[in-house]
């Protein structure tokens, strides 16, 4: 699916150069479920943003589906991103002014899909994550778990091959957190590649592999048998 080769990311201010990622080498196969762990500030989110093509590396190669996208311009990245990658955030990031339905549809809006097909796919995915009865509600009328389910629905409605989840359970209580994790697991079972940043070892256990980051380095990679 993707391969990071000697990838580094620095942030420069006037005087200080901060190294966020230092010579990272990671390979993720298609259909994998990978958790990324590490203390705050170790570079997890930076790594996820680069994998998600929201940020570009300072150095090194990023091979995505056989293509080195490291030096690609934003417009090109945006295109690859919307075809292949779905996002789930800790703070859900739903648009307050749009209904559940419209929030999910947003992910299809920029894909040149006819309206009738969009409606169909949104209905289907709402069923799948169990939010169909809330279709016309505004995000502010939903619980956190429900909001995150909407976010998951939005991430997969475009049939993206890979989902990047940045602490998807961080703002949820344990019951809702587990619910979301199970949803991700079943998506993975259907063949979606999932890369998830998390602080929770329990939730990391859902993944087949855990990558531990510290100060921008990959420290260990733990493989575990499928659950």
């Amino acid at each position: 699916m993707l391969k990071l080769h000697n990838l580094s990311k620095y942030y420069r201010t006037d005087e200080v150069e901060t190294v966020a990622l230092d010579n990272v080498n990671i390979e993720i196969e298609s259909g994998e479920f990978v958790a990324i762990m590490g203390p705050s500030g170790c570079g997890k989110s930076t790594l996820l943003n680069i994998v998600g093509m929201l940020d570009s590396p300072s150095d090194g190669d990023y091979i995505f589906m056989g293509e080195n996208v490291a030096g690609y311009p934003e417009s090109k990245l945006s295109n690859i991103r919307k075809q292949n990658i779905g996002f789930i955030f800790q703070s859900f990031n739903l648009i307050d002014e749009l209904t559940v339905e419209e929030n999910i549809e947003l992910a299809l809006l920029y894909h040149n899909i006819p309206a009738s097909e969009r409606r169909e796919r949104v209905a289907k995915v709402m069923d799948k994550v169990g939010i169909a009865h809330r279709a016309k509600h505004m995000p502010s009328q939903l619980s956190g778990g429900q909001q995150q389910r909407v976010a998951v629905a939005r991430a997969v409605v475009g049939d993206q091959a890979m989902i990047l989840a940045d602490e998807p359970t961080g703002n949820l209580d344990s019951a809702h957190g587990q619910e979301v994790m199970e949803m991700l697991q079943s998506l993975n079972a259907e063949g979606t590649t999932i890369v998830m940043v998390t602080h929770s070892p329990a939730h990391a256990d859902y993944a087949r592999r855990t990558i531990n980051l510290f100060d921008g380095h990959v420290v260990t990679e733990d493989l575990r048998a499928a659950v």
Partner: peptide, 11 residues
Amino acid sequence: EIGIRRIMGAS
């Protein structure tokens, strides 16, 4: 909102 739309692929 603009950020979300951009991530969703809006140009």
